[in-house]
């Protein structure tokens, strides 16, 4: 499904990693591991199409990233960034607004709340302002949003870094069997969720 062919990542002059090759089959989860600053997040950004790919190629169904219309690539390859900025309004506002985005008109409407609930996210979280959500709540909101877009591939950047053991287990259950690249620091988690592991850096 998703292939990386000789992908390299530089930060300024420094080469973070080079010649990364991997192939992600449908339904498989590959864990991405490596020390902090190894370029794991940059790799996710590049695959998602938010940074140019500096070297090598990323392909989906055999077709290079550049050959896909941007909107379609982003719908098929869903990036779940580390919970960073606080969007305006509440998650529910963003869900409503997403339905108005041109690229999503006519797309099936799947309610992300059900996924949130399966990840032990309280239903109240959806209607609270982003600012008042904890890191763990934000992570699960972002995951539920990504999953509800029904993408082919999920790019998960440390999706459980702010979660306790129970919530982590729930997230792992919801994500099981989905096609994903999963960045994690946790060796035990990699062993639980991944069919293979790549080391970067």
């Amino acid at each position: 499904m998703l292939e990386l062919d000789g992908v390299a990542c530089r930060f300024g002059e420094r080469v973070l990693f080079a010649d990364l090759c991997l192939s992600l089959a449908s339904g498989a989860t590959v864990a991405v591991r490596g020390p902090s600053g190894a370029g794991k997040s940059l790799l996710m950004r590049a695959i998602a199409g938010f940074d140019p790919i500096q070297e090598g190629a990323v392909r989906l169904e055999g077709r290079a990233q550049d050959a896909w219309p941007v909107a379609e690539w982003r719908a098929r390859v869903a990036w779940v960034p580390q919970a960073g900025g606080a969007p305006w309004g509440s998650p529910a506002d963003l869900v409503a607004e997403r339905a108005t985005f041109r690229a999503r008109r006519g797309a099936p409407v799947v309610d992300p709340r059900a996924f949130g609930e399966a990840m032990l996210l309280s239903a109240r979280s959806w209607d609270q302002p982003w600012r008042s959500l904890s890191g763990g709540e934000r992570q699960r909101v972002l995951l539920a949003l990504a999953i509800s877009g029904e993408p082919d591939v999920l790019l998960l950047d440390e999706p459980t870094s702010a979660l306790d053991a129970a919530a982590t287990a729930a997230v792992e259950r919801v994500l099981a069997g989905r096609t994903a690249l999963w960045v994690t620091h946790d060796v035990a988690q990699a062993a639980r969720v991944a069919t293979a592991t790549v080391e970067v850096g």
Binding site: A71, R74, P81, A103
Partner: peptide, 8 residues
């Protein structure tokens, strides 16, 4: 994040 959810 908004673009990741499909926004131009």
């Amino acid at each position: 994040l908004r673009m990741a959810l499909g926004a131009s």
